[in-house]
Design a protein around this nucleic acid. Structure first.
Lengths: 196, 196
DNA sequence: TTGAAGGTACAACGATCGTTGTAGTTTCGC
DNA sequence: GCGAAACTACAACGATCGTTGTACCTTCAA
């Protein structure tokens, strides 16, 4: 066999699916629209992901892959110095800003998929790994910073972070988001959950 | 003319549309599925809301109507005593619990519509009134409680509240939500935004 | 060089979509 | 009562949907 499965093309199709989810919504995510967006002959997507469920799951798995890559590379260059609480809020605020602007498309797709996962156990399972990875990665970061944050606290922060991001990404004026705004939200999240 | 427009039937169709949005998602919201859900002859929904856009907007306007009704009736029986900060967090926590359980269907529909509003200015405008009403009502409540909360603070709290609700409503185990959990989230929101 | 296996392109199925048109029915001003 | 106006039911349009089947092509083990 040439390749067991054409992974490159699978990735391209999944990326096209993500772009459609963010740009047109799950209502317009079909085999044929993915074909057109990816610039492949009609029927290609149906060959790779015969059921619509397969297509949704492929988009979700691609998003998990992208997010995990981002998390591991972002965790790498943290210097070993002892950054304190304000740094944490600043870090979180900048992360929130980036997520709401540069990564807006990806998160719009995530929120589409999360809603769909309400009725699709398979999707829910795939996306659960994303949530778990985020908690794990955040917990590791806090440990690295010498903070004694508990898992429950991290989960609360992740919940509030993801929620605030939803509001930012879907809210009016998604182009008018400022770093001050996201920093204020992050500060509220950090002090609200961690105290002080 | 009998009635200028059959408001009762419009309401029934909008309610059916909301139920479908929450239960099957916007992908399955069609004229015909609304007909079936509402138990009316095929074609009825298309008569009342000829374009799909009209149907989405009708669902959104119905949700605004229901929510505003809830807010005004909930604001009524507040005794004039001076409840303090912990009461506020408790109030918000209980409200969060109710929203995530009894009102879960409505909020699932809202989050579907908010995502759709990203590409439909008309929907965005309708839903903006819901957000504005919530802020206004919350601001009035805080004034009534003798708290000097600013509009920016209320907006931050509403953002975090709506976001936390999204996580609760879409997250795994939507049936395992506890009042302790929502109270803890509410406390974090209140202290995070208001300080202390 | 051959053959099996998987990748690829494309046609086609019935079902459903969004939308429009058109007869019948009901209601109320006159 | 009578007629206009709105409500109602239903048929139908072309387009697209999800899905399946089928030929052709490429690649590599034998």
């Amino acid at each position: 066999m040439p390749q067991p499965r054409n992974e490159e093309r699978r990735r391209a199709l999944a990326d096209a699916a993500i772009a459609i989810l963010a740009g047109q919504g799950s209502h317009h995510l079909t085999h044929r629209t993915v074909d057109r967006r990816a610039g492949v002959p009609a029927g290609t997507t149906a060959n790779y992901f015969p059921q619509r469920d397969d297509l949704l799951d492929a988009a979700a798995r691609r998003i998990v892959e992208l997010s995990v890559t981002d998390m591991t590379t972002a965790a790498a260059p943290t210097q070993t110095g002892p950054p304190s609480r304000p740094d944490l809020a600043g870090l979180l605020g900048d992360s929130l800003f980036a997520a709401a602007t540069v990564l807006r498309e990806r998160y719009l797709a995530i929120y589409e998929l999360l809603l769909e996962a309400t009725r699709r156990p398979r999707l829910a399972e795939t996306l659960a790994t994303l949530s778990e990875s985020t908690v794990q990665s955040t917990l590791a970061l806090h440990r690295e910073l010498g903070l004694g944050t508990t898992r429950a606290q991290v989960e609360a922060m992740v919940t509030l972070y993801g929620g605030a991001l939803y509001a930012l990404v879907t809210g009016p004026g998604a182009e008018t988001i400022t770093r001050d705004q996201t920093r204020a939200l992050a500060r509220a999240i950090v002090t609200g959950v961690l105290g002080d």
